[in-house]
Design a protein around this nucleic acid. Sequence first.
DNA 1: GTTATGTATAGGTTATTATCAATGGGTTGT
DNA 2: ACAACCCATTGATAATAACCTATACATAAC
Lengths: 314, 314
Amino acid sequence: MDLRHISFRLLEVFMSVVTTGSISKTARALHLTQPTVSLQIKRLQESVGEPLILMQQQKLTVTEAGLELFKTCQQVFGQFNDYKDFLAQLRGGERGRCKIAMVNTAQYILPKLLGPYSNLHPHVELPLEIGNRAEVLARFERGEDDIYVFSHPPSLEHAKAARFLQNPLEFIVPSEHPLAAASAVTLAELTHYRFLLREPGSATRMLFESELQGRGLVLSDSVQMASNEAIRVAVSSGMGIGVLSRHVLPKGEQGFKVLTVSDTHLASHWYFVIRTDRHLSHAARSFLQFAELNLARYLDARWVRNELNQLELN
Amino acid sequence: MDLRHISFRLLEVFMSVVTTGSISKTARALHLTQPTVSLQIKRLQESVGEPLILMQQQKLTVTEAGLELFKTCQQVFGQFNDYKDFLAQLRGGERGRCKIAMVNTAQYILPKLLGPYSNLHPHVELPLEIGNRAEVLARFERGEDDIYVFSHPPSLEHAKAARFLQNPLEFIVPSEHPLAAASAVTLAELTHYRFLLREPGSATRMLFESELQGRGLVLSDSVQMASNEAIRVAVSSGMGIGVLSRHVLPKGEQGFKVLTVSDTHLASHWYFVIRTDRHLSHAARSFLQFAELNLARYLDARWVRNELNQLELN
DNA sequence: GTTATGTATAGGTTATTATCAATGGGTTGT
DNA sequence: ACAACCCATTGATAATAACCTATACATAAC
């Protein structure tokens, strides 16, 4: 038996012949002519190498081999119907995978969207990758993920980016710091103190430094720290002033105080980034559409900047 | 997703691409060229309406849809392998159906062959039909069975017949019959007594009557009875002389006696008959081959007349 | 920078498929 | 006996599937 050149169409025709018990009826049912069906069956029988139906006394009977083939076909079409269902779910975004790579700081805000989304689409896998800006950029280059989250837009080929949230920066000082009691301060005043900053590549630091540079200011002293958490702890223990995303700050200020800097309002933006040269997976599209509709609901509405329509998801 | 024009070959190629993880390797493995495989996959993807594999960074990855299709294919090929096994069994005569229609008297001898055969091939269905000569002939005409058993060859179009057993006729008389004590009698002597016979069409009666006619003898009295069993009982109760196939007589003579008729040796033959214009089912062929080899073993060797090679089974 | 290696695309050939209409030979039913 | 069905066969056609070679184009390896 040589299946190679048998198409599913052929099996469909065969199944119809078995169920209708007639070649002519099948022809009518499938909008074919009777000779066509006759030939199809003949060809199928040759491929199988065994008679599948017999005409005896003008009545069509199905042979043992034919009946068994029919059962096999039923199962096979069942399997493919299951597959079709799977595809439908995939396309509907109910199933599949949406791999997201994000820079460190994003891990404080993205879960607020991911949680509700995941509850709505429990069958969608949502593997997350967290790294620093350079790492996430490298992942983007290699196209390892479906969605990338940056603050600070990467200007790359094949990238489409859209802002979705403001990332306001806040200055925090130890509770016992000389400036802690001031009702308002200026940026220039701050530069006399020691600053605790993330590594040079980080969006927060880049934004802060370009602001300083634009205003001709220079920090008298700064220390580099590996994480936002480390900065927060260091500030609380009196090491210096920190510049952190507002989203990173815990609700209750513990051991530090947020300054009101009257002449400075620093804010970068969070971006969803996708590659234009890759098919966006259905799940990823589904997540971004969810985000577009629900940003204000799950994130602090004051900072939402919904420009996801720029991704042209539809 | 439109399966209609997808052939199994195409799925085979796809599966190979998934398992080898490379289009070129698949091409080499299946003795195709690389562009051929590329195109096949492309076509499959179009049929499915969803990307199945992705090339990223020179590495081939299988999408969700692709992986699921692969699993589906595995199952489907599994089903068809099962079907192939089934076909092999069918062809080997291990499975299937062998419908046999036989005349009444044959039911006393055929089970001796069918029993051992059935033990050897437990998965072969062996439906039996038993009727008088006319009924079995009608079944033959309509081609309702695979094998027909007659004594007396039907000379029909599309029939191939072969003898396999002599059917010697015996004369039986009631124990208290005047002839019961005689050591030997002649046919002519018998004609003076009442005979118990089957219906005119039966092979036994036809044979007996043609013998009488050939020798210019006429029965003085005869009664028609519906079955061999009825004749046996009637003889035992003294109603007259019976003519019965030796194979029908029980081992211990009860209430009757078998005569030795010195001038008469009547014997017809049992025939297996098949239609030449129908495919002989594998099971039927298998049974006849079994019979050809084992006649002498399971039937009384004295009467075996093995001419089954005339059926040209091989 | 050159050489493999792997994939995609273009262009072409041949065999096969999927159809059809027309026709002939059977059965069945009236 | 005739109409009504059913199936098989024939002959024809347009589409397409299944391949190939040649070529271009990446990336990885040396």
